[in-house]
Design a protein around this nucleic acid. Structure first.
Lengths: 112, 112
DNA sequence: CGCCAATATGCCTCAGCAGTTATATAACCG
DNA sequence: CGGTTATATAACTGCTGAGGCATATTGGCG
């Protein structure tokens, strides 16, 4: 799940969000991010090595686009957590509330 | 999307994976992770501030459990990227290829 | 071949974070 | 209260990573 780390970086997430709409050259991204070209290239390298983006060469330009694989992976990772909100939580919350009420150290109890 | 950063850290992802199965006290996690208690507490703080976990007090113990909210958020963030692999990409790729052929470099920045 | 355009890499600095040990806070027990 | 357990915070260290500038590299053109 290297992609997780790669995508955690805000600038890289911005890059990915741009690439979601259309593939871009490095210069496109530099313009879009208002950032030095080396910085962008370095982020792209990280994304590339994490498998988040793929490149193809067109003359001197490198055209970057998203690779679906890591997103799939992320989706798979997330899958079991979906139960957290698809299960209604009603019963669970009542259960936890009850626990809290009986065991929370009596802060709200009779002052004595 | 602070949760993204919080979850990028491998140790924190391990914590979250343990908490997915059952809620835990700090000591439980210390045992599960084979790591110093302060380190665990600090990770829990990060997760707490990112809204990933919630705490409940039971005597001296703090019982941590997952909060669904950030996972929902993550799911929402991921949603548009699902098109990357659910569409078999056939049409999409043709579309992108066409764009590339007509000149991607002409677009000097995000349309918006 | 020499020049230009597009991109990548090297080197540097700075900031932040993970982990450690020592210590403070909080809650229970007698 | 004093002692003990459970957790949080503080101070410190080591590492990594982001961003900047300068420069190497790669491809196209005359």
């Amino acid at each position: 799940m290297d992609a997780f780390v790669a995508l955690a970086e805000p600038t890289r997430r911005r890059i990915v969000e741009v690439l979601r709409l259309r593939e871009c050259t490095v210069s496109d991204l530099v313009a879009a991010l208002a950032m030095s070209q080396p910085a962008v290239s370095k982020h792209l390298r990280v994304l590339r090595e994490a498998g988040v983006v793929a490149v193809r060469t067109h003359a001197q330009q490198r055209i970057y686009r998203l690779d679906p694989a890591p997103f799939r992976e992320l989706d798979a990772w997330l899958a079991p957590y979906r139960a957290l909100w698809t299960h209604h939580l009603d019963a669970l919350e009542r259960h936890l509330d009850a626990h809290a009420a009986t065991g929370v150290s009596g802060a709200a109890g009779p002052a004595g």
